[in-house]
Write a protein that binds this DNA or RNA. Structure first.
Lengths: 237, 237
DNA sequence: TAATATAGTGCCTAAACGACACTATATGAG
DNA sequence: CTCATATAGTGTCGTTTAGGCACTATATTA
């Protein structure tokens, strides 16, 4: 039998296969708080419980796993997040009552203002303060996934400016530092924080300023590849 | 309908689902070279081509995805590698001729001596120098996966001593440095390399020495959690 | 005009890597 | 036995970059 004959006779459905889903941990920063997007499950299993947004691959629509997660997030928020990165794949026989299951998880970031209006119109979708979400008993193993995403984002905040994607396109350095501090959970040295960003030339000065009661702060926007840049040295841990 | 009724009526096979596999990039270090384990495919599709070791989840045997990858590697090498870490999950409609597919990939490391005898007895399984494997046209998207694993391992070599798992339990510091250099692709400063390992107290002096023609080198073994330790600063990139 | 608030800088210290010369301890040849 | 050679391991200084904190800059508001 050659390969062509094999493929013609092949039936995917004939084999047992774990249930495969894609989930996302979408973070944003709003009112001095890190928040995560949760959805209330409207169907069995775990009906009525809060969970991370996600769903099944649509084989006719999605070309990649990232297509799936972006599509699902767009359904919930109305927009495609500017930052989406694979987090981890959780799998096992005990994480879903329907049987052996696998979920490919992503971390995503978005500016709160870019999707607030859409989320307000959809029921069963909400931004929840991370501090509160941590204490909730989420569906499946989603509490574990959330903790894992927080820890990974925390690491990234120590050696990159990825957290900037949780802010609007234009932002100030004090704002960015506050996001980092919210993620890391402790205050950072202003000088250290600013110096390394300047030295690596990661931001573009828009020429505009924004005032918040004191001296106006310079508004910056990210340079194209700045999200991929990693500092060779971590901030204090 | 309550959840119990829903679960009784639920049939996993009734839904289309991507093909799910688990693959591993198993590295070792032997004769001054970084090597990767490859297997020759004995079945369709891509029959006769070299590929990364891997396979399907066995729902009755495996409790987690890591169980699957460890089981598959044990089939090929006869032993369970001391280091196994999830790498990335690749998925899409074009990576397998059988249709939409997903592979959860792992990086693993093992000492060459711990599995050489077993591998010699199995046909279609071989250690291939990474420099050569890079140039081969592997099955599916395995060439891409190999490159991804190399890059990730290279990063790890800059801020951890994970590469030590590619050596036997007892090893010398010059040996470890050579593994790091093979992975990174350039020479490292002996002093910098040794200093950070000593300062972080990652290794245990076994009291033994090993001579290779000059002054004998101290034999060390890894401390329990040393693989998880990350230096706050990378070596020069 | 002065008090206050927030943004941004100067400058010294500390930690850790880079570079490289130097010492230490084996083996093996004459 | 001694010396050349090879490999292991250390001393030390310069460089880079973060930490710390006081200082300056520029807005608003009483």
């Amino acid at each position: 039998m050659n390969e062509e004959e094999y493929l013609q006779g092949y039936d995917k459905g004939a084999f047992e296969a774990p249930l495969l889903t894609v989930d996302a941990v979408l973070f944003t920063y709003h009112q001095d708080e890190l928040k995560v997007l949760l959805v209330e499950r409207s169907n069995h299993p775990e009906k009525g419980r809060w969970a991370l947004p996600g769903g099944f691959v649509a084989e006719d629509v999605d070309k990649t796993l990232e297509d799936t997660v972006v599509r699902k997030l767009k359904e919930k928020t109305g927009v495609e997040p500017p930052y989406v990165e694979q987090l981890y794949t959780f799998g096992g026989d005990d994480r879903d009552k329907r049987g052996w299951s696998v979920t490919v998880c992503y971390t995503a970031l978005i500016a709160h203002q870019d999707c607030q209006t859409h989320i307000d119109t959809v029921s069963g979708v909400a931004w929840v303060k991370v501090a509160r979400a941590e204490k909730m008993d989420l569906a499946f193993d989603h509490s574990k996934i959330l903790r894992y995403a927080q820890e990974r984002l925390r690491q990234k905040a120590l050696y990159s400016i990825v957290p900037a994607y949780a802010l609007p396109k234009k932002f100030t350095l004090p704002e960015l530092q506050r996001v980092h501090e919210a993620i890391i959970g402790k205050p950072l040295q202003k000088k250290s924080f600013r110096r390394r960003i300047e030295q690596a030339d990661l931001l573009i000065d828009t020429g505009e300023k924004r005032s918040e009661g004191g001296r106006p702060a310079t508004l910056y926007r990210m340079r194209a590849k700045s999200g991929d840049y990693t500092f060779v040295r971590n901030l204090e841990q």
